[in-house]
Design a protein around this nucleic acid. Sequence first.
DNA 1: CCAGAAACTGGTATCGGTACCAGTTCTACG
DNA 2: CGTAGAACTGGTACCGATACCAGTTTCTGG
Lengths: 331, 331
Amino acid sequence: MPRKVTLADVAAAAGVSKMTASRAMRGAKDVSQKNLDKVRKAAQDIGYVGNHVAASLSNNRSDLIGVVVPSLSNIVFAEVMSGIERAIDGTGFQPVFGVTDYDTEKEYDIVRRMLSWRPAGLIVTGLDQSEATLRLLQEDSLPVVQIMDTDGTPVDVSVGFSQDNAAEEMAKALISAGRRRIGYVGCNLDQDTRAARRRMRFAQTLEALGHPLVGEEIAEGMSSVAAGRWLTSALLARHPDLDCIYYSNDDMAAGGLYHCMAYSLKVPEKLMLAGFNGLDLLTSLPAPIATTRTPRDQIGRRAAEAILERLNRTERDGPTVIELAPEIRLP
Amino acid sequence: MPRKVTLADVAAAAGVSKMTASRAMRGAKDVSQKNLDKVRKAAQDIGYVGNHVAASLSNNRSDLIGVVVPSLSNIVFAEVMSGIERAIDGTGFQPVFGVTDYDTEKEYDIVRRMLSWRPAGLIVTGLDQSEATLRLLQEDSLPVVQIMDTDGTPVDVSVGFSQDNAAEEMAKALISAGRRRIGYVGCNLDQDTRAARRRMRFAQTLEALGHPLVGEEIAEGMSSVAAGRWLTSALLARHPDLDCIYYSNDDMAAGGLYHCMAYSLKVPEKLMLAGFNGLDLLTSLPAPIATTRTPRDQIGRRAAEAILERLNRTERDGPTVIELAPEIRLP
DNA sequence: CCAGAAACTGGTATCGGTACCAGTTCTACG
DNA sequence: CGTAGAACTGGTACCGATACCAGTTTCTGG
């Protein structure tokens, strides 16, 4: 294996010093056109690739941005990451990701490992990190964005929306739409604290409005279309007279719709279904489903932008909340 | 801001040399129990976090694994990344990702940037990189895995399945199932070369079997449920007598099904729909759709494993193809 | 034509670890 | 009890870039 080409090789090939080569390779500042061309040509010729590791060590900051999400099989987080990626694209930063599987211990390890790369910033999901994790995040002035959730005080910046409000709004909207016998179907609530939070607030709001939840069906394990289908079947078996079901998310709601279609239940006339997220999946369903359209792409984008804006500060300027209100869609 | 805690600080606090501290912090080899404890305690006390940048520079290899995919909004790649993540979880490696948006130029930039981090390995999508990109990948003995596609010769390792075979098998299966008037619906074929390849082979196979494609509807832009729905509508308007439609993927097929349900077309009796991928999305649809279940999680996992296996080699051992045959599912 | 500023260039120290090697201490065994 | 070998320890030289500063050249204007 031919030894890796270094900047020194480029410099030698171009007949200039390492420093001049270094300056030439990033931005042309303070380098004569002649040397600039020579260095570029030399780099091209010998196939120089650069070494961000050395560069990062030297100026004590990397151009990595850490992204920590609970799951990747959930399309919601994939879309958030997509938004992050688009915002970062072209800035020379590079996203690094970690998946916690909704496990707080694991989140701690991941954050720690990421910090050891001295990233330019960190994006983590939710506001409910463990004590130890929060301590890590508070430590220095690194830009930290907590996404998805704004029901609380962020370490630095939070970008997202209030899960509480979202659930409350949906409850009110369904009541306004004339629904009275409402049920709930959800999955994975012990791990997905945001979904759990929505359920709680949804039930409270219904109660306050005088039409408490008639029944609910909750399962462990990841949410899925299949789970939505059979939980709906179970719930309707116990409460055939429901006129509305609120789901922990869209996938589950789609499963519910499939059940209804198989049993020829009129949706939404007889039974209205309400999901959460507003996925592409729903836009063309044969029967309309209510949902809360969450700005996932926006969240990713704004989170990344928040980091970029805070790169050169030396002090944190107090918790900042960036609220991106979701939008309710009824059939 | 308090200056970053370094290993030297830990060593000083523990009353040992930097070297002993270094050894103590990673694996206990060649360190007395007494010093091990002292160092660990000191690190804990002063909140030492470690610096992978310095470590990587020193031993000229990082524990980053680069992952390059064309898109993140496509759940297929999110699942592949999920598989990768699971495979490297606990090994101390860290995934870095880049998204090409199906753009070869961008892919080159991303690969280049990733190489500048001296990653432990690289996972890229497909076998159809540009000349320049391939040159980068060939350069040294870095483990490189090309995923999704095995119709060709990989730079190092490829993990996936033959898109050609998959399409051919589906064509044969549909004919065996008695279908004769078959159409095609697809999106984004100029960019998604794998989908384009499947379409091509599908059409060829039908032709060879004596029942050529009756018609097709192709659109630009990303594939989606919505696109599937209106393209299906358009195709059926031109060819009302089709008894089968093959789609570029499951999302499109789901859209097709929604159209059929809205117009009460009997699926699959009157019209059989065939997608591609076997997403969770399909498992509970009210009417069954044929599909090719692709092992996305497996691909991610095996790709990551392939890299881990090749970490300590010094030479590439010739192109290796890891074939993970997909499975056809008919209604 | 020259002083002073601006533009450019390169040497040296460093970033925070690890490899390597040369000690030093400890253990086992004849 | 002496000694070979194992177990442990620490000094020094890097890894490949960049910051900083000092020196050199080139450009101004008077």
